[in-house]
């Protein structure tokens, strides 16, 4: 374990993240502000469409915050996986010419998403105050939920980045899966809108759905449907967590096996 957090690796990680950040908004006038502006503008559009026009979520208290939290968490997940997916191929020049731990590249791509998440959570904090949400002690669960999303996304990134080296279709397939996932996850609509209980249960087996609902429970309102509520206990409420662990472990194993041949396959 010690070798993974060696001085060299930490130095490398910080430089890779720094470079990522510097290059991302290069040439744009507003620069880093886009990290905040982008989700805010997206949120504004969705809010107008879903809350004002379609009048969804009227019966959920603090729906704007509820909606924003869902979007921010989904974006966090989407950013890690999409950045992670292309990270190995994108850094092909490094991989072919220098021996650095390959996982560092995927890991560093996830760190910039993590930084964005922190910025976005600050925005949410402002909305929590503006919307007069009563914050309860259940807030302490939020870091755990974030950690779960992070591990899930990291496991997927490891798998996707390694597969992308061999098959360039992975990026297109993943784009479609993410689009489907966005609608299969109760982000824009409250889970209660789905009246069929089996569907509700199936949807909640998706780790992202479970995590977003749990995050809403911990931050916004206890009225939201969580996996504990819907499944009413029982071992199968562990399914999302099992999925996360399976994805992470198989992602790590696949990445480890394939990483030996990155340099020649890119």
């Amino acid at each position: 374990m010690k070798q993974y957090i060696s001085k060299q690796n930490r130095a490398l990680l910080s430089e890779l993240v720094r470079t990522d950040f510097k290059l991302r908004y290069q040439g744009s006038v507003l620069g880093y502000a886009w990290s905040l502006l982008r989700p805010l503008l997206l949120f504004a559009i969705l809010y107008v469409v879903f809350v004002k026009f379609l009048r969804i979520g009227g019966d959920v208290s603090h729906f704007p915050v509820y909606l924003l939290l869902g979007i921010v968490l989904w974006n966090f997940f989407a950013e890690i996986t999409s950045q992670g997916l292309g990270s190995i191929v994108g850094r092909g020049d490094l991989i072919r010419k220098i021996r650095i731990p390959r996982w560092m590249i995927v890991f560093s791509a996830s760190i910039s998403a993590l930084i964005n998440l922190v910025l976005n959570l600050l925005v949410i904090a402002v909305f929590v105050i503006l919307n007069k949400v009563e914050v309860s002690a259940s807030l302490i669960w939020l870091p755990l939920v974030l950690f779960e999303i992070y591990l899930f996304a990291l496991g997927l990134s490891l798998f996707l980045s390694a597969a992308f080296v061999k098959y360039r279709d992975v990026s297109y397939i993943w784009e479609v899966i993410m689009q489907a996932g966005f609608y299969l996850t109760p982000i824009l609509y409250p889970l209660a809108m789905i009246t069929n209980e089996t569907f509700q249960k199936l949807l909640l087996m998706n780790p992202m759905a479970q995590a977003i609902q749990d995050a809403r429970y911990s931050v916004v309102t206890h009225e939201t449907a969580t996996i504990y509520g819907v499944f009413e206990g029982g071992w199968y409420m562990l399914i999302p967590f099992i999925i996360v662990i399976l994805v992470l472990v198989s992602g790590l194993l696949y990445f480890k096996r394939e990483s030996k041949y990155f340099a020649e396959n890119i």
Binding site: K7, S14, T19
Partner: peptide, 18 residues
């Protein structure tokens, strides 16, 4: 990146801290 930034990036690849 600037020359300066590249020095630090390249150094990190060789295992040097900032």
């Amino acid at each position: 990146l600037t020359g300066r930034e590249n020095v630090f990036l390249n150094g990190a690849l060789l295992g040097f801290s900032r």
